[in-house]
């Protein structure tokens, strides 16, 4: 049962990433990182225990959002959802991410929750996760040994588990530079407007006129981790996006997923409606340049 009372912990306030990494190295799985706190604080009131909370609050320079037409988008570890929302570049070049940010939780939470925090939560219902998965890119992890980059395709391993090692900090998200004909979109279904998704989906298409050269489709809430719809992507690759193709996709998606019943929806509904949602994100991506 939840409580109003936080369990006891030591709050550590490193001032550099290096200090933070060395604290992680020292305390390993006895420590957790806190930035926005919108996940870890809730977890700590419902049974999660950690001896040390390593806060990023005093580390400067991690709240950037930088777009470069040739290298892409860089989002820092402390960059909030609200920052993403206020970026015209994200809205223009990475609409899937912007759309995910626009419906993310509530305005209050958007002001403190971070994009990277959402990726690290590794929930199959994560809206930013879903968008980022379709957009592709890398997550930069820094550990005692230095930095490494992990593709988003290899980042989410199981429910709540990512490729981040216990002594690493995810310091940056890189999204690739958009190429000509790049389009993306995100949509979700919820019970009320301010809710966790019962289904979410994102499409990232590389279009050449009406023809789809490449597609990345991601879908959430249908497995323990967000998933790519590779068979459906294959249907799109090289194809002209017609109504017939979209209807075929609607049917195909249901065969590619194995959702379960939970408190937010049913397996049956997810199976039937996932394809509709994919159709919507493809259509929306195509309609908007």
């Amino acid at each position: 049962m939840n409580t109003r009372i936080m369990p006891e912990f030591d709050l550590l306030l490193p001032e550099t990433v290096e200090q933070a990494v060395s604290l992680l190295d020292k305390y390993q799985d006895k420590a957790s990182i806190i930035s926005g706190g919108t996940d870890v604080c809730v977890a700590m009131k419902s049974g999660y225990r950690t001896d040390f909370l390593i806060s990023l609050a005093k580390i400067s320079g991690l709240d950037y959002l930088e777009y470069d037409p040739s290298t892409g988008l860089r989002i820092g570890a402390k960059t909030t959802i609200s920052q993403v929302l206020s970026s015209a570049d994200v809205k223009t070049y990475y609409p899937a991410l912007w759309q995910a940010a626009s419906i993310f939780a509530t305005p209050q939470l958007r002001n403190t929750a971070t994009v990277i925090g959402n990726l690290l939560r590794a929930s199959p219902a994560g809206d930013c996760i879903c968008a980022v998965y379709a957009l592709g890119g890398n997550i930069v992890l820094q550990g005692a040994e230095g930095q490494r980059e992990v593709s988003v395709d290899e980042f989410w391993l199981a429910y709540g588990v990512t490729a981040r090692k216990v002594d690493e900090i995810a310091i940056e998200l890189n999204l690739p530079a958009p190429v000509k004909g790049n389009r993306s979109s995100f949509k979700r279904l919820t019970r009320t407007n301010e809710d966790l998704a019962k289904l979410n989906a994102a499409a990232h298409l590389e279009m050449d006129g009406k023809k789809c050269k490449q597609a990345r489709l991601s879908i959430g809430c249908v497995a323990a981790i967000p998933m790519r719809l590779e068979k459906t992507e294959a249907l799109l690759k090289g194809a002209e996006i017609t109504d017939d193709l979209l209807e075929k996709i609607v049917t195909n998606v249901g065969n590619e997923i194995s959702p379960i019943d939970d408190v937010r929806s049913t397996a049956e509904y997810r199976n039937q409606v996932a394809g509709v949602l994919i159709k919507r994100v493809i259509t929306q991506a195509c309609c908007k340049s």
């Binding site: 939840n2 019970r191 009320t192 407007n193 301010e194 809710d195 966790l196 408190v263 937010r264």
Partner: peptide, 16 residues
């Protein structure tokens, strides 16, 4: 009880 919190007991919000 599976939804004894506002996370999963859904009342309509202002925007609904």
């Amino acid at each position: 009880c599976l939804n004894n919190s506002f996370t999963d007991y859904k009342m309509l919000g202002a925007s609904d």
